[in-house]
Design a protein around this nucleic acid. Structure first.
Lengths: 258, 258
DNA sequence: ACGGCCTGCCCATTGAATGGGATCGCCGTT
DNA sequence: AACGGCGATCCCATTCAATGGGCAGGCCGT
């Protein structure tokens, strides 16, 4: 009697997950260091059966969300970026801010970043880097925690009260000996930021880097983004506050203009 | 006898379309001029029944692909951009090229663009604009036809043979009296580009704008992108070729370096 | 108060998506 | 050359997630 392959009807079909969930998981499987993946590796990372992964990749390639390399490996497609960028309010903010950021960058000669609040993190939408400057630990489309980055603190200071409480309540991860992990201290800093209109974060994320950030307000005076500069610790942070504030004001003008 | 609502079992469920198709159509419904849409309008544009549209929007919002405005209208979410940008090979090219583009931009003082080949069009991944310069008719994430833009001609000249034939065969849309619509002329220009390493397009898209473009090659000497400058017609185009070529070479160095 | 419009929920219905297994092709090793 | 391992795709019976009319509640301008 043939036993193998006849062991009752095994559970087939259905996954208990929406297609969207899986599409997002597939996209999340790619990272800056793993930009090209085989279908197998991709399926593994996304937690999908090989057959399902294969089919999903084929579909996503057909719709331009993924692209196949010459060596059959898979990458994220440019069409996805196009769809995401074309009508994104955040990206149009970026585009408006660009000329100002360029000028600021030419002036200060260090990393210049534009970040927005997304969930419980800062998401950097633009970054003009200075080759010779302090270590690079952010990229475009990278995220940083709100309590340990200058942009993050600025955005948190002007965020809805419930988000502030949530962050203050949750554990505050430590990155260096200087990272602020005491909620009470953070709360005081946030009040200071609202009063002063800027913040200086010395070695919170990386012991040798200082971040300085100011808020950018939209036409309704709501804080929509933060501009920041990353400088080595030995540089006088105070000198950069005025140019930063001036840049923020120029971006605000361009936001209101058209 | 109640007639209404009893007229036999109406066809329900199923659409004959994959979820992905619809997700893409929803995203396509947004344009730079319509960045926020009501659920109703969105459903209409994407060709979806109201109920289905409502549910899809809810799902997509939950996964961060869309975001809801304060006034209940819908926008594209930043998370989508993040997923698209984080691991995109094209975007990392952009990031590498940025410092060079910045410098070039400061030097020439006109629109500077970085475009890649995508399907049968150029897709612009970066654009540094000059406020006072000629009319803006491209944006980031915008597309232009291959035969009528300087970047397009450069990319087409180095594209696979079958794509070249396809474009040469298809109708060549006319935008100005100067647009090249004769396949034979275009074919000759492509050969010239391969020989010269640059192209000048005078008034092909807009009667008063001239585009100048050069190719950027990756580590395998394959053309991966095109850098272009847009100048007013009365400016001497020739003067910009050398700086452009120099910029392209510097980008190529940075592509091969790490 | 009324009509138009937008929105989201309900729920019977069903076809699109599923995943185990078989197949095919490509390596490097025996 | 034959083998074994691996990765990718195909096949197809199975089934549940997605579907879309209908309906009700909310909002606005008239």
């Amino acid at each position: 009697m043939s036993q193998i392959g006849t062991l009752a009807t095994v559970a087939r079909s259905s996954s208990g997950e929406s297609v969207l969930e899986r599409v997002v998981r597939v996209l999340e499987a790619f990272t800056p260091s793993d930009r090209a993946l085989t279908v197998g590796e991709l399926s593994r990372r996304a937690g999908l059966p090989a057959a399902t992964g294969s089919r999903m990749v084929a579909d996503m390639v057909e719709h331009g969300l993924l692209a196949r390399d010459a060596d059959r490996r898979v990458r994220v497609g440019t069409r996805l970026w196009e769809l995401a960028s074309r009508a994104s309010p955040t990206l149009s903010l970026r585009e408006l801010a660009m000329p100002v950021l360029e000028e600021l960058h030419g002036h200060v000669g260090h990393h210049v970043q534009l970040g927005v609040l997304d969930g419980e993190q800062v998401l950097f939408v633009e970054r003009l880097s200075a080759d010779q400057a302090v270590i690079n630990y952010t990229r475009i489309a990278a995220r940083l925690p709100l309590h340990a980055s200058s942009s993050g603190e600025v955005l948190l200071a002007h965020a809805p009260a419930d988000l502030q409480e949530q962050v203050l309540a949750g554990p505050l991860a430590r990155f260096t000996p200087f990272t602020i992990t005491d909620p009470a201290v953070l709360r005081r800093r946030l009040a200071d930021i609202r009063r002063d209109g800027f913040v200086v974060c010395c070695g919170f994320l990386h012991p040798e880097a200082t971040g300085i950030a100011v808020p950018v307000r939209d036409e309704h005076r709501q804080v929509a983004a933060a501009v920041s500069v990353i400088v080595p610790n030995d540089e006088r942070a105070r000198d950069h506050i005025a140019p930063l504030a001036a840049a923020a004001r120029r971006i605000e003008q361009r936001l209101s203009a058209p």
